[in-house]
Amino acid sequence: MQRTMEPAEVWTSATGVPERLVWRAQRFRVDDTPTPLVGPAEWWLAFAGNDPGAGRAPLAITGWRFQATSPEGDTHVFDVGHDGTHWHVLRVFD
């Protein structure tokens, strides 16, 4: 596993699910069902110091994990995230 924070271009479906990406000048097509990565909802951060009572803080999709393959046959599992402006590759599993 490589930990990284490299820029990437990600194309998504109409529902926001990743379908393709370009990373390190190489094109990849998502070839499995992406899994959402979740974390506390951004709007909840203002209340983070308070006890939420029963349960836990509300969750939101913070990124995606998926397998993708290049036309040359290179396959990786990617963790990607969006910072509100740009997509980034967060981790790569070989």
Rank of each mutant, 00 (worst) to 15 (best):
T33V: 14
R65L: 09
A8M: 00
P40M: 04
V22F: 07
R65C: 11
L59W: 06
V22A: 10
V77D: 15
D31V: 03
A14V: 08
G55E: 00
E42Y: 05
V22T: 14
R20P: 08
V22S: 11
A46H: 02
G39F: 05
V92N: 05
R91M: 10
P36L: 09
A14R: 09
S13M: 02
W43Y: 09
M5F: 12
L21Y: 02
P36Q: 07
W43I: 02
V17P: 03
P7Y: 09
A68S: 11
P36K: 04
W44L: 03
F28V: 10
W23T: 00
T12P: 00
S13G: 06
Q67F: 12
T35M: 14
D51T: 01
A14T: 08
H88R: 10
E6P: 02
T35V: 10
F78K: 03
R65Q: 15
D83R: 01
H76R: 15
T35D: 11
W87T: 07
R91H: 15
D79Q: 15
L21Q: 02
L45G: 04
P36G: 08
E19F: 05
N50H: 13
Q26S: 13
G53H: 01
D32K: 04
D51A: 04
G81M: 12
R91L: 13
W11D: 12
H86F: 13
P52F: 08
D51V: 01
A48L: 10
T4V: 14
E9I: 04
R29Y: 08
D32V: 04
I61H: 13
P52A: 04
T75M: 06
D32E: 06
D31T: 00
P7Q: 11
L45F: 12
S13R: 01
H86L: 09
P71Q: 00
F93T: 10
A68R: 07
T4M: 11
G16P: 01
D79I: 11
R24K: 13
V17L: 03
L45I: 02
W64D: 12
V17E: 14
M1W: 07
P40A: 05
F66K: 11
P52Y: 10
R24V: 05
A57W: 13
E42G: 07
D31I: 05
G55A: 05
P34L: 04
Q2I: 11
T85K: 14
D83S: 07
P18R: 02
H86E: 12
P40F: 00
A57S: 10
T62M: 15
D94A: 12
D94T: 14
R24G: 02
R20T: 12
W44M: 02
G63T: 01
G55F: 10
P18E: 00
P36F: 02
W23D: 09
W43E: 11
H82I: 02
